[in-house]
């Protein structure tokens, strides 16, 4: 099975490519000097201490996570419904609808941001958290639609028809058959949406109410003076939290499960 080995090696190389910059960020979080390149001159935890003292970035982190989770919820819900319509039904104007749904990524964000602000002025509404949430959801929508659609196309209609012929209602069919099969795509979509929101900078700058900072806007502001390795430390903490906690939870769950038997 040498072809499989080749595929595996190739995959590993791609992962190495994906992780090289992350590895660098993680390593440099422990570098003692500010503009340290390689070789690393000294090991230090000072950037972690500075990070812990930095209230602003901790607050921004909380805002970003909240916003990201809510964005994931909103855009995944809207996106799954829309994808169902696109894949499961034939109707006129489908090309136009698809293009509309994907349009948020076609419009340069700077311009979309300004256009929406002009609209708000017309409505006499101030910038708010809700605007930011809706804006992020719409920016994330195309990603959700594309990934869910691609998966739905692969789920044969016959499965649903089988359920219907066994007496399930359309809603029951959706929850018992379609949704479970769709789950990987729904989570991929939600993950995309969270990520898009968490990482968005251009539109966020324009839409946020004064005084609200997300992690990217906070970092963007800090760039005028210099890049502090605190940001690397923040990256380290985020990765440890997002990977470490679930791993730990999974490990504990397995441990207790084993104890029971």
């Amino acid at each position: 099975m040498s072809a499989w080995k080749l595929i595996r090696t190739y995959t590993i190389l791609v992962y190495v490519f994906m992780f090289a910059p992350i590895a660098v960020v993680l390593l440099l979080a422990f570098n003692s000097s500010q503009f340290g390149g390689f070789p690393i001159e000294g090991f230090s935890l000072r950037w972690f201490y500075k990070l812990a003292e930095n209230d602003a970035i901790v607050r921004a982190f909380k805002t970003s996570v909240t916003l990201g989770l809510m964005t994931a919820l909103v855009s995944t819900t809207i996106g799954v419904l829309a994808s169902l319509a696109l894949v499961r039904y034939q109707f006129r104007g489908k090309d136009l609808v698809t293009t509309l749904l994907i349009s948020p990524v076609l419009v340069p964000e700077t311009v979309l941001a300004v256009g929406l602000l002009i609209f708000l002025r017309w409505l006499h509404m101030p910038r708010s958290f809700l605007l930011l949430l809706m804006g992020h959801s719409i920016v994330a929508l195309p990603f959700v639609v594309l990934v869910v659609q691609a998966r739905l196309v692969g789920i044969k209609k016959e499965y649903e028809e089988a359920a219907r012929s066994l007496g399930a209602s359309p809603v029951q069919t959706f929850f018992a058959v379609t949704l479970p099969l769709l789950m990987p795509a729904v989570f991929a979509g939600a993950l995309f949406a969270f990520t898009i929101s968490f990482d968005n900078i251009t539109a966020t700058i324009f839409w946020r109410p004064t005084g609200m900072e997300t992690v990217p806007t906070q970092i963007f502001g800090m760039l005028r003076n210099s890049i502090s390795p605190e940001i690397n430390a923040l990256g380290f903490v985020m990765i440890v939290v997002t990977v470490g906690v679930p791993l730990l939870a999974g490990g504990l769950a397995r441990y207790f499960a084993r104890k029971k038997t």
Partner: peptide, 30 residues
Amino acid sequence: LLLILPFWVSFIIRTLSWIHILGNQGALNG
């Protein structure tokens, strides 16, 4: 999950970090 992981580090920092890899004092040159 590993695929999504790089996104948790801010886009700007991720992009700048290529300088740490390909730059004069980057990892590759080192």
